[in-house]
Simulated assay, not measured.
Amino acid sequence: MEQITGYLRADGKIGVRNHVLVIPSSGCALHVAKMITRKVPGAVCLANQYGCGQIGKDLEQTFRTLAGLGRNPNVGAVMVVGLGCESLQPGLLADNIALSGKPVEMIIIQNNGGTSGAIAKGTQLLKKLAANVAKAEPSHYPASEIILGLECGASDATSGLAANPSLGYAADMLVQSGGSIILSETVEIIGAEHVLARRAANPEIAAKLLGVVQAFEQRVVNEGSDIRDTQPTPGNKAGGITTLEEKSLGCIYKAGTTAVNDVLAYAEGIRGKGLSVMDTPGHDIQSMIGMLAGGAQIVAFTTGRGSPCGTPIAPVVKITANKQTYAKMMDNIDVYVGGVIEGSSSIQVSGAQIYEQVMAACNGQLTCSEKLQHREFALWRIGTSY
Rank of each mutant, 00 (worst) to 15 (best):
I109L: 09
T233D: 13
P90L: 05
V299R: 00
E60Q: 08
I4K: 02
I119A: 02
A134P: 06
A10Q: 11
A360H: 04
P41L: 10
Q214D: 13
G339I: 07
Q89M: 13
G101A: 07
G56R: 03
L174T: 06
L88P: 02
V78M: 09
G256K: 04
G191W: 15
Y169M: 01
Q49E: 13
V220M: 11
L93R: 05
L292F: 03
G290Y: 00
A163D: 10
P281Y: 08
P103W: 07
S276G: 12
F301H: 15
V212H: 04
R305S: 10
E86R: 02
Y386F: 01
R381I: 07
S166F: 00
G240K: 09
V340H: 05
M79L: 11
M173I: 15
I333W: 08
V80D: 01
E193S: 14
A265Q: 13
T258M: 03
G294K: 01
G364A: 10
A200D: 09
A300V: 11
P41H: 12
I23W: 14
R9T: 11
G179I: 13
E188C: 09
P24A: 12
I14K: 06
I205W: 06
N222C: 01
K318P: 09
L92I: 03
E151G: 02
L183W: 09
A134V: 07
E193N: 06
S350G: 03
V213H: 03
Q324N: 11
H31S: 08
V316Q: 12
S144E: 08
V175E: 14
P41K: 14
A130W: 04
S276T: 07
G310F: 04
E105Q: 15
V335T: 06
G191C: 13
S155N: 15
L83M: 13
K102C: 02
G239M: 12
A134K: 07
E370K: 09
F377T: 01
G295E: 03
C362P: 05
G235I: 11
P138K: 10
G51Q: 08
D284L: 13
L30T: 02
L210Y: 00
G15Y: 10
A215W: 01
E370W: 08
T233G: 14
G42A: 05
G53M: 14
T158A: 12
A163V: 07
S225W: 09
M79V: 03
G6S: 14
E105T: 15
E2S: 12
L275C: 09
I189Q: 12
R9Y: 08
E204V: 13
G343Y: 01
D334C: 05
G168N: 09
V187T: 15
N332H: 14
P103E: 13
E223M: 12
I23M: 12
